[in-house]
Amino acid sequence: MTSAPATSTDAAWLVGLLQAGDSFYPTGGYAHSFGLEGLIELGVVHDRETLRSFFLLSALPTLRQAELPLAAHAYAAFDPVAPDWTRVAELCVLAHALKSPRELRAATDNIGRQRAELAARLHAHPLATDYLARAVSGSWPFSAAVSAALEGRILGAPRDAVLAGITYSTLSATLAAAMKLLRLGQNAGQTLLTEMLGHAPEIIATANTIPLAGIGWFNPWLDIASARHETANSRMFIS
């Protein structure tokens, strides 16, 4: 798998990725904690140190072994000259099959759908409109990682920049949820985010080496917490 060169100026795709990674971008990510609320309810995560451990032991490996490899393969499949729609469909299904808890699938479905529809609306690119038409007719589930790869291709961004964007938006969204759920200040949050983003080059490099058959990773406690969150009496986040 190789990264295609940028098809527009660096500034053009760079601002596009910044826009897509901003919390102002209406993908609905702000409504999800991606299982973290459940883990807090279980008592696994309860302060800055345990949150840091959660990022190191769970959030980063999930990115490295599942979300980023999915996006890397989707990026290859969304070749603007000859899209591999069979592979795209396979990746959409795989993105859901990798998540046993229903809420985690709903989260990636909602965010992925919003992001793909936004990409089509904002950029009027044939790749996006074609993807949406095929996804509807084929009942493909949506995936945040697959839609991020689609958007990256539309913007002309190189693969690793797309993966960096996914890394940032995933970590920052989880951290934003954590700041609503835990006693965590702005500075502590940014310090943690900076530390985790420092792992981005390493996890992106590894993600690019993972074959389709090797995609997948799960944290048993996160899956249990997410499954229980479905029936929680009170909750702040959808997932």
Partner: peptide, 21 residues
Amino acid sequence: LLLRERLDQSASDLHALATLA
């Protein structure tokens, strides 16, 4: 395809998760 799971943690990483939990 309903599920495709892959548990591929090192012993130390899974131990660390168990300790965290």
